[in-house]
C-alpha cells in the first residue's frame, strides 16, 4: 500500500513538471506578448524595451530555467497588465472560485448520488425515467447556456436574484446552481448505471438469497462495490471544476480564477496565464492522486497487493 501510494505520488510530480514545461514552451510559441500588450502603433524601440524588461529577449531554455527557479521560491513574476505580483493577483481570486466550485461540488454529490441510487433501485419506473430525463437534459445543455437561461428566468423575469457580481451571498446562488446541476446530472447518470451493473452481480443475488433486508443489500453490499468506479467519475467532475469556472464565471461576472483566466488570456498577460495553468494542473494532479489513493482504500484487490 505504501509503495503504491509512493509510486503514484512520484508519478503526480512527474506529470506536474512535464505540464509546466509544455505550457511554458507552448505559450512562448503562440504569439508575441509585446505586440498584444502594447498599442498597435508602438514603435520597435518600445517593443524591444518591453521584451528586455520582461526577459523575453532571452532564449527559451534560459527563460525556462529562470522561471522554474523563481517559481520554486514562490515567485511567479509580475503581471504585465498592472505590475502587481502574479502570486497576489491569482491568490485573491482563489477564495471566490472556491466558494462557487466547492459548494457546487458538494451540492452535485448530494443531488446526483441519491438520484442515481433511486433511479437504479426503482429501475424502469416513472421515477427512474423522470430522473434520467432530467439528467440527460442537464448534461446535454452546455452550462454557460444554462447560466444564461437562469439569468433570464431568475434575474430578468422573476427578479428574485442578482445576475452578476459577487457582493452578497445571493450573488453566488445562480453560479452555484448552474454548476451543480450540470455536475449532478453527470454523477446521477453514472451512479445509476454503475449500481445497476453491481446489482446484477452474483454476490448480490447471494446476499438476497441469504435474507439480508433489501436496503441493507443496497447500502452495505452494492454501494461499496459501486463506489470504486464512482470515484473515477467524481474525480473527473472535481477535476473539471476549475476548467468549468472559466466557462461559468464570465457569464455571471463572478470575479474568480475562471474570469481572471479569460481576461488574462485576452490581454496576453503571460505570467498570469501561466501561473493559472500551473495552478489548474496542480489541482488536476492532486485530484488524480486522491483518486488513486481512494481506489486503494476502497478496493481490497489493490490494497492487499
Amino acid at each position: 500500500m505504501t509503495a503504491f501510494i509512493l509510486a503514484r505520488f512520484l508519478r503526480a510530480i512527474a506529470v506536474l513538471v512535464f505540464t509546466v514545461t509544455l505550457v511554458f514552451i507552448v505559450l512562448r510559441l503562440t504569439g508575441d506578448p509585446a505586440q498584444q500588450m502594447l498599442s498597435d502603433n508602438a514603435g520597435p524601440e518600445a517593443l524591444a524595451a518591453f521584451n528586455e524588461k520582461w526577459g523575453l529577449d532571452r532564449s527559451i531554455p534560459e527563460q525556462y530555467l529562470y522561471y522554474v527557479v523563481n517559481a520554486l521560491r514562490g515567485d511567479f513574476g509580475v503581471s504585465f497588465a498592472d505590475g502587481r505580483e502574479v502570486f497576489t493577483v491569482v491568490a485573491e481570486r482563489i477564495p471566490k472560485t472556491l466558494v462557487v466550485t466547492v459548494s457546487a461540488f458538494i451540492l452535485s454529490l448530494l443531488i446526483g448520488i441519491p438520484a442515481g441510487i433511486l433511479a437504479a433501485v426503482r429501475r424502469e419506473t416513472a421515477l427512474d425515467k423522470s430522473v434520467m430525463a432530467g439528467a440527460v437534459l442537464g448534461y446535454s445543455v452546455p452550462n454557460f447556456l444554462l447560466g444564461l437561461v437562469f439569468i433570464f428566468v431568475f434575474a430578468v423575469w422573476l427578479r428574485v436574484l442578482p445576475s452578476s457580481g459577487s457582493s452578497t451571498w445571493n450573488h453566488a446562488v445562480l453560479p452555484v446552481a448552474t454548476f451543480a446541476l450540470f455536475n449532478a446530472a453527470a454523477i446521477a447518470r453514472f451512479m445509476r448505471s454503475t449500481l445497476i451493473d453491481v446489482l446484477g452481480q452474483p454476490y448480490i443475488a447471494a446476499a438476497r438469497a441469504d435474507g439480508i433486508p433489501y436496503w441493507d443489500v443496497i447500502l452495505r453490499h452494492a454501494l461499496p462495490n459501486a463506489a470504486i468506479p464512482m470515484v473515477t467519475t467524481i474525480g473527473f467532475v472535481a477535476g473539471g471544476l476549475l476548467g468549468g469556472s472559466a466557462l461559468i464565471e464570465p457569464v455571471f461576472a463572478w470575479p474568480g480564477l475562471g474570469s481572471g483566466f479569460v481576461n488574462a488570456t485576452n490581454t496576453g498577460d503571460l505570467p498570469v496565464v501561466q501561473a493559472m495553468i500551473v495552478l489548474f494542473t496542480a489541482f488536476m494532479v492532486a485530484i488524480n492522486f486522491s483518486v488513486d489513493v481512494l481506489y486503494a482504500v476502497l478496493n481490497p484487490k489493490i490494497r492487499k497487493h
Binding site: 452481480q201 452474483p202 454476490y203 443475488a205 447471494a206 446476499a207 438469497a209 441469504d210 453490499h221 461499496p224 462495490n225 470504486i228 476502497l298 478496493n299 481490497p300 484487490k301
Partner: peptide
C-alpha cells in the same frame, strides 16, 4: 443456498 461460481458469489469488498 450455495452457487455455481463461489468466487463471484462472494462480495469482493468484504
Amino acid at each position: 443456498m450455495i452457487f455455481q461460481d463461489p468466487t463471484s458469489s462472494l462480495n469482493p469488498v468484504h
